[in-house]
Amino acid sequence: MKKSSTGGNTAPLPVALGAWIALLFLHVPVLIILLYAFTTEEATYSFPPPGLTLRWIGITMGRTDFWQALQLSLRVAGIATLAALVLGTLAAAAVARSRFFGKEAVSFLLLLPLALPGIVTGIALRSAISLGNIPFSFWTIVIGHATFCVVVVYNNVVARLRRFGNSQVEASMDLGANGWQTFRYVIFPNIASALLAGGMLAFALSFDEVIVTTFTAGQQSTLPIWIFSQLVRPRDRPVTNVVAIVVILITFIPIVIAHRLTQESNE
């Protein structure tokens, strides 16, 4: 879509070199994972791999513990994202629409969980859950994930609402639309892409979350925790690499789409 910048304006060699090194540094480990998902070795890795095989994919697919972890992660991410979409939108609407005392403080408090280290959120949640005598379960994981998912959605939606302004909302009410109809026909179409982008980002964040999950989970293993446990007790080591690829696919695609959506609406 965008035209390339003016031709002949290439970066000087040291800068270009630096950029390439940074890119390699970031992405070579990912490439290694890709590569060793197909190695014929079982426990140790050597370079180059002695041979390539697709057998690990089959083995992974046959492991019920993998399927259970994947299913749990998808459900947690799905429900946490849904909750975040509802709560985040409501919070954004409250902050963007109204002029109430302490609005700035509320806005800041809403953003705080994203800035807090996950370990703090984790400890805090664990204490709160224990204090409340709530058994650690699927729902405690969802609650833990919802804390940062809400923020992501809120952040996206509130920015959009600010730009959207209030005049179209007033016009809608003036023309006979009640609150719900105004949301449905006027506000929603304008924040839909922000919601989708926020939702996808939230989903991706939840799907590979480890720290908060370790504090809020009971016996269950989400996919990232399952991978971690596999590394500690290696059995069919390349299986973890195959699973890592699954994680990459599931988190990477929504993030790319979310990025696209926010870019488009910013133009």
Binding site: S167, Q168, E170, A171, S172, D174, L175, P189, N190
Partner: peptide, 12 residues
């Protein structure tokens, strides 16, 4: 019904 100064048309 109101005709707003900024028109406030539904852009979408």
């Amino acid at each position: 019904n109101t005709v707003f100064q900024s028109y406030a048309l539904f852009q979408h």
